[in-house]
């Protein structure tokens, strides 16, 4: 049984979460709520929306924790961020993030976008922040799938360079 002051290994934490242990849920929240909240603020650009989304995100995480499998290679933290992004995309909201919000954002992770070309930035915003598929993005921006893929690669390369530098 997990104790509140105990730092569990990922295996123990996952096992306890699957059993619905409240201490494991508290531990997960205390450990990851701040980065998830920061990410949701970036995605929505509005704290009140991020508030609701954080609650919904954790509800989804607790409900679907069995879907997370370590064998797939992705870490728990990355999976949680992915869940937060999916929740933000799936939940309808009037205040969507626009290119301007990103440019003026103080977020360290988004500064890399300032170095991107306008088209590249628009492709990344639609794909990552709006959750559009590449085909949908191509239709939206009147591009070919190949162009979208190339712009996305360019953005991800810039993100890789930026993240390794910081």
């Amino acid at each position: 049984m997990l104790q509140p002051e105990q730092v569990p290994t990922e295996e123990i934490l996952l096992a306890q979460l699957r059993e619905g242990n409240i201490v494991a849920k508290q531990w997960l929240y205390d450990r990851y709520a701040a980065p998830l909240y920061g990410h949701l603020i970036q995605l929505t650009g509005a704290k009140p929306i991020a508030d609701d989304l954080l609650v919904i995100t954790f509800e989804r995480i607790f409900k679907n924790i069995h879907e997370y499998e370590q064998s797939r290679g992705i870490s728990l933290f990355s999976w949680l961020i992915k869940m937060a992004r999916e929740t933000a995309i799936k939940t309808p909201s009037d205040a969507g993030l626009t290119g301007n919000d990103i440019t003026h954002s103080r977020s360290g992770a988004l500064h890399f976008m300032n170095a991107l070309s306008e088209q590249c930035k628009r492709v990344f915003v639609l794909c990552y922040y709006k959750g559009f598929s590449r085909i949908e993005t191509a239709k939206q921006l009147d591009m070919t799938d190949e162009q979208v893929l190339n712009y996305l690669k360019e953005a991800l390369t810039a993100l890789r360079r930026f993240s390794r530098r910081s």
Binding site: Q42, S75, S78, I81, A109, S163, S166
Partner: peptide, 12 residues
């Protein structure tokens, strides 16, 4: 990425 996400962390 973890480093970036932790940098952007904001206490709820």
């Amino acid at each position: 990425f973890h480093k970036l996400w932790l940098e952007d962390a904001y206490p709820p």
